[in-house]
Design a protein around this nucleic acid. Sequence first.
DNA 1: GCCGTTTTCGGCCCGACTGTTTTCAGTCG
Length: 579
Amino acid sequence: MKKIFNFEIANILYEMSELYEMENVQFKPRAYRRAAESIEALNENVSDIYSKGGIKALLEISGVGEAIAEHIELLIKTGTFSEYEKFKKKIPVKWDELTSVQGVGPKTIKVLYKKLNVKNLKDLERAAKQGKIKKLKNFGEKTEENILRSINFLSKSKGRFLLGDILPVVLSIEEALKKIPGVSQVTTAGSIRRQQETIGDIDILVTAKNPRKVMDIFVALPEVDTVFGKGKTKTNVILKNGINADIRVLDPESYGSALQYFTGDKNHNIKLRIIAEKKGYKLNEYGLSKGEKKVAGKTEEEIYKKLGMEYIEPELRTDSGEIEASIAGKLPKLISYNSILGDLQMHTKWSDGTSSIKEMALLAKKNGLKYIAITDHTKNLGIASGLDEKELVRHGKEIDKLNKEIKNFRILKSAEINVLKNGGLDIADSALKKLDIVSIAVHSNFKMGKKEMTARVIKAMQNPYVNILFHPTGRVIKQRPSYEIDMDEIIKTAKKYGVALEIDSFSDRLDLNDLNIKKAVDAGVKLVIDTDAHSPSHLSFLNFGVAQARRGWAKKSDILNTLPVDKFLKAIKGLKNKQ
DNA sequence: GCCGTTTTCGGCCCGACTGTTTTCAGTCG
């Protein structure tokens, strides 16, 4: 049996959905899409679920019924199933490639394949360039142009973007829009407001007296590359960095409902509309109404209130329990932005950072922090010129000196100590003892099996001097997946041995992720949020970590470095005594 | 094909925009 990943199963189900759509079959497309979405969102491997509980366990997955469960069983056992094979024979095209082109959907693919034998992106580009598409019935000049433009865009962008890369651009666009006379409100909704790790596109909402003017100015902004559509209320463009951006101009009376509509992810919104319907309302982007009468819409708060719910923070709106908690009045009070007092991971010229300890400290102080820990790498990370025991002593002396020099601020002696292959550390206990905070991380032998890796990290966490486990899963977004590690076991160990887990705010790490944060919070494990800064500009990442914590339902009390330095040190050392 | 404080049968989110059309299908979010 070949191991099949969740995303592979999901992709095949998505494909089935498109295929049924192409055939004009009713409702099946949505059923398959839903099943695909919930499998994509699963934490556990579908193959594991199946091997543990068989078909019965598969039926527990929401959106998976008897038919799809059987398909999945066959996918796990044989890698395919007969309906899928039948479809593939009928239309042997690269679905993922072709559907990634803006404006090309199942119906279009069918026509292009039947008439022009278009099977993949290359065929599509060739057909468009040769002017064959515009000659087809129901196609025209514009369609062909748009296809070419979209292919061109695809080669530039390749999918999703890091929040950290997109946010500065968004802020600059928002600034420009706010300056337009007659514009009252500007908010970017969607995955940016939810502070997702990666962003698919940008949704900007504006209220304004003169929508046309807003649209004219928007499309002329320097950030804009190509205009795909421009209407009175909605305009769609591609920005120069390759991301898609929509802007909508709204009536102030509908601002809240639009904000709600465009902020919640699809599943959150669908569930909310169902709740509205059950209560006799209709909910859409223009408001909440009963019959002809609008009863709410100006603010999001009034919509949730009318539906008998607590207000739900944007970061939680992903249908992962927040709706039920809101109805029950059991939403947590999330940690707020700018509530971190000390940054606990920071690199300097001593290892692989760009700046001195002093420069980092002064900037952190200027940013409003009260303390930092300098965590240069240790000796086994040769590539980052890691420090050995002797250098750590000199490192500490430099910090002592700066602590006398910089007032109302504290620099903690620390290090990012390597977890060796056998679970040992690359710095002797006698040197660890002298540090204020001991943090450990895996930087080598990423390809170990899950059991081995988990045991390795657990052994390191059992060292009596260890306070924090840095970036516990090791993933780098869009670059490399997490190493194989059993986070449930790591969380148990963290609790048992009094180790805090890090939420690394670096924009391509964000490690722990939201799901693991929630697990840790539920288990009563304490967390810290820090930047992993290697240069001064990285200090601005701190709130990405807070956003991640919020998405993981963390409260202020779950995050130790919201405490002043003395209380923080007491609390983190105190974890050890509770064993 | 899935699902149930709308129902084990009969419903499934829905509105904007585009392009190619003379009234709408397809796509998207």
